[in-house]
Design a binder for these strands. Structure first.
Lengths: 102, 102
DNA sequence: AAACTAGATTACCAAAAAGTAACCTTCTTG
DNA sequence: CAAGAAGGTTACTTTTTGGTAATCTAGTTT
């Protein structure tokens, strides 16, 4: 495998999707409690800044792992939950967790 | 899961082990060709600097994923290969690769 | 009409990760 | 005795990532 091939191999793509500082924790919460509004998530993850949380969520959304929905009403709310693709990560994250604990 | 728990959960540990910029590629090569000497690896991965390659290798070694051996003779050589623990990552990396390609 | 709300965005700053080029060591070879 | 070889280390710079605090929007409540 050459460098150029590596840059867009599946492994690299997957790791880029999940390895931002807060992504594993965001995914963890979405796996364990279906869906979150923005501020809920922000309060649940105490140390992340809004800016970075937004950035992580946008990126997860772009990569198709989560879905963002705007909820009608005022003030405007958003809801985030795992997509079908995102849910497929479940067993892999579990394997990684087991590996890290072994 | 709270932030403090997250900091030393298995998932975080695993991701920290493998998500350095060059780690996936280093592991890939070790999986596909048993062992490498330092300069072999450096030439195989054309853009990494010696400094960073060394750092990655040291870290993989500390985490028990690879083994470093000094080979007697002159000039002194080193050889790197996967440990048993490292080999256990194989299926997980394969899953991540499939996921990223899907 | 002022204050409040959720979900951000902006400008600016700090820290972490990676890159570059030169150098070191210890023997061996020409 | 100068040059070369393998496997690094060092000092310094750049890039990437994340953090802080202030601000915005537009409808709602007091």
């Amino acid at each position: 495998m050459k460098y150029t091939e590596f840059e867009n191999c599946g492994l690299k793509k997957s790791l880029d999707m999940i390895s931002g500082k807060w992504n594993p924790l965001i995914l963890y919460h979405l796996f364990h409690q279906g869906n979150y509004r923005f501020n809920e998530l922000w309060q649940t993850i105490p140390k992340v800044s809004k800016k970075v949380l937004t950035k992580h969520l946008r990126q997860l959304e772009e990569n198709g792992l989560i879905q963002r929905k705007e909820i009608q009403g005022f003030p405007p709310r958003t809801s985030y939950n795992l997509s079908n693709k995102g849910k497929k990560l479940g067993p892999i994250l579990k394997d990684l967790d087991n590996f890290g604990n072994s």
